[in-house]
C-alpha cells in the first residue's frame, strides 16, 4: 500500500513531464519547422496588415460582399476567442422566428429563388469559413449589382473559389467567403465603383 502511494505520486510527476511537457513541445517544434503557415493559423497578410485567418469566418454585412453564415460566437458573432453555436433545439421558438425573419429578408433580396438552408442557419463553431455553392449562387446577383459587374463575372469568381470534395469524396463542396471577398476587392474594388 505504502509503496503504491509513493509510486502513484512519482508516476504522476514523471508522466506529467513526459506527456504534458516534452510531448507537446516536441510536436510544436517539429510542426513549426514542417508546416509553419498551418501551425500558426494560416493568417493572411495584405499590404503589411494581417487581415484574418484563411480558415476562420469574419463578419461581412455590406451588400457588395458575400456574407458568411450567421454566427453565435461571442456577443456580436464571429468572436474567435469565444467559439460556439446557438444550441437551439429543433422546436425552439427562437430558432423558428429567426429563420422566418431571415428567410423573408432573403426572399426580398432575391425573389423567386429557394433560400439555401445554410444561408439562414448558424454554424457550429460560429467561425465556419465556408458557404455552400448554392448559398454563393444565391448571393451572386446582389453582389454583382452592388459592384456593377455582370452576374457571369461574379459567378466566375465564385467558381474559381469553389472547392470540391477533398480527394474527390470527402466532406462537401464549399466556397471560402473571406478568400472570395478579398479577391473581389482586388478585382473590382468597392471604392472604384463608388467613384464611377
Amino acid at each position: 500500500m505504502k509503496r503504491n502511494i509513493l509510486t502513484a505520486v512519482l508516476m504522476t510527476i514523471v508522466t506529467t513531464i513526459l506527456l504534458g511537457l516534452v510531448y507537446p513541445l516536441v510536436v510544436t517544434g517539429v510542426a513549426q519547422v514542417l508546416f509553419h503557415d498551418k501551425a500558426n493559423g494560416q493568417l493572411i497578410v495584405q499590404d503589411g496588415k494581417t487581415v484574418g485567418s484563411r480558415v476562420l469566418a469574419q463578419p461581412f454585412t455590406g451588400a457588395g460582399y458575400f456574407h458568411p453564415r450567421a454566427s453565435a460566437a461571442g456577443t456580436n458573432g464571429y468572436d474567435a476567442t469565444n467559439s460556439g453555436g446557438t444550441n437551439y433545439g429543433p422546436t425552439n421558438q427562437k430558432l423558428i422566428d429567426r429563420v422566418k425573419q431571415d428567410v423573408a429578408a432573403a426572399q426580398q433580396e432575391n425573389p423567386g429563388h429557394a433560400v439555401p438552408v445554410d444561408y439562414v442557419t448558424t454554424s457550429a463553431s460560429g467561425l465556419d469559413p465556408d458557404i455552400t455553392p448554392a448559398n454563393a449562387e444565391f448571393q451572386g446577383p446582389r453582389v454583382a449589382r452592388e459592384r456593377g459587374i455582370s452576374l457571369e463575372q461574379a459567378m466566375a469568381l465564385v467558381k474559381a473559389h469553389t472547392k470540391g470534395r477533398q480527394l474527390g469524396v470527402l466532406g462537401e463542396a464549399r466556397v471560402n467567403v473571406l478568400e472570395l471577398n478579398l479577391d473581389l476587392d482586388r478585382q473590382v474594388p468597392l471604392a472604384k465603383r463608388a467613384a464611377r
Binding site: R69, G85, T86, N87, Y88, P90, L95, V117, D118, T121, T122, S123, A124, S125, D128, D130, I131, T132, G171, E172, R174
Partner: peptide
C-alpha cells in the same frame, strides 16, 4: 438540418 453544423462536414 444545418443549424449548428459546419458546411465542410
Amino acid at each position: 438540418n444545418m443549424e449548428g453544423k459546419e458546411v465542410r462536414f
